[in-house]
Design a protein around this nucleic acid. Structure first.
Lengths: 215, 215
DNA sequence: GTCTATAATCAGATAGAC
DNA sequence: GTCTATCTGATTATAGAC
């Protein structure tokens, strides 16, 4: 087999693979693992059901791939900071990224929420190890900032929960938010409004000043 | 038929009815509407599957009853206040009730979250009418308080979303929170910790003072 | 009112032609 | 690699004995 053929084939493989993953992400996000059918995923991907089984050994394997991809993307995009950084800059940046992520890729947070609501059977281990470790590290940095008097002392873990909940709300409860605001979808101006109020309330709440209020 | 017999029968009916509703609430909360099976509900209720169909015509009818009951309970327990009330007292009380509700009856919020994540097919109408109306009324009160200079001006709807998200987080993401905090379940002391930090950050964030910080 | 048995449909997974 | 046909088991719902 010529190399060019090989490339073309693996290109097709890659394309189908991603197509299925994307379709699965949407369907799983809407109805959770148990509530989603391979049929629904196949239809969304525009393929016969059997093709999915050609690329993924079974439903659970597909689900794990989708979840894995989300966790990897989340770990890349967010949350690396050190005690040397400026507290308000760090929180502002973190909140802004989370809001953007929630509004632009709500499926990801919805799928994650679905998984956690059903008891996190697939990611309990991940939460107990990597996520807990990450939270411990970042909490320690918060604590140092508080000890230095750079911010008001509040429980660091719960502060992180507040950031997660307020931002992810716009993904998980997207349907409710849009219905209440009488909008069809999020617009770019919404990202800014949301980021602004969440940042302002939380930063002020822990004794910090948002950059746009300084001087 | 004697009256006593009639009473006994309707008592049995009531007991079974509630038993099924409670079982259904748990199962639907964990796996959503599509992901839940009548079988699982029957097992949790300790009844043969057919008995459920004796009390509820079908799966959707059972689901709607469960949802209905949650919405009624939520409407009773929370959130009646007027512009004459004191802003910090109102917010403190509202947040405390929501935290208690989230920690004590996480199923309810989980089920609601599940419904909204899947696009709110069963309650879109409720959200568009009653809930939107409620939000408009309360937002108007917030706005009056802000106009009077009693609190810092922020978007009232989004402020409400922040209260909902931070409190409901402890229900919807209960599994994650407990895994991260390395706890088996919420304790009474947790209710207080959570209420305290959420209240403190949000109230301070909108320029109010929690009661325990006054004088 | 309760429960076993069963009809009818749907879902996950595979076989095998192309 | 792709797709139709099909197997097997689960699921909703009902029939009918008790």
């Amino acid at each position: 087999m010529k190399a060019s053929e090989n490339n073309r084939k693996s290109h097709i493989r890659e394309k189908n693979y991603l197509n299925i993953l994307n379709a699965a992400e949407e369907v799983f996000a809407q109805n959770g693992f148990k509530g989603s059918s391979m049929n629904a995923i196949a239809e969304k991907a525009g393929l016969p059901k059997a093709n999915i089984h050609y690329y993924f050994s079974n439903k659970m394997a597909l689900y794990m791939e989708v979840l894995q991809r989300i966790l990897v993307e989340w770990n890349q995009g967010l949350g690396e900071f050190t005690e040397q950084d400026d507290p308000s800059e760090v929180l502002e940046h973190y909140i802004a990224s989370k809001v953007l992520q929630a509004c632009q890729k709500p499926h990801q947070s919805k799928l994650f929420a679905s998984e956690v609501i059903s008891g996190a059977p697939a990611i309990a281990d991940y939460i107990r190890t990597e996520m807990r470790q990450w939270l411990r590290e970042k909490s320690a940095i918060f604590q140092i900032w508080m000890d230095k008097g750079l911010m008001k002392p509040v429980d660091p873990s719960h502060l992180m929960f507040m950031i997660w909940s307020t931002t992810q709300h716009y993904a998980d409860y997207q349907t409710q938010v849009l219905l209440l605001l009488n909008q069809q979808e999020y617009e770019t101006s919404d990202y800014e409004t949301i980021t602004r109020i969440v940042t302002e309330v939380i930063l002020t709440g822990v004794g910090l000043t948002p950059s746009w209020k300084k001087q």
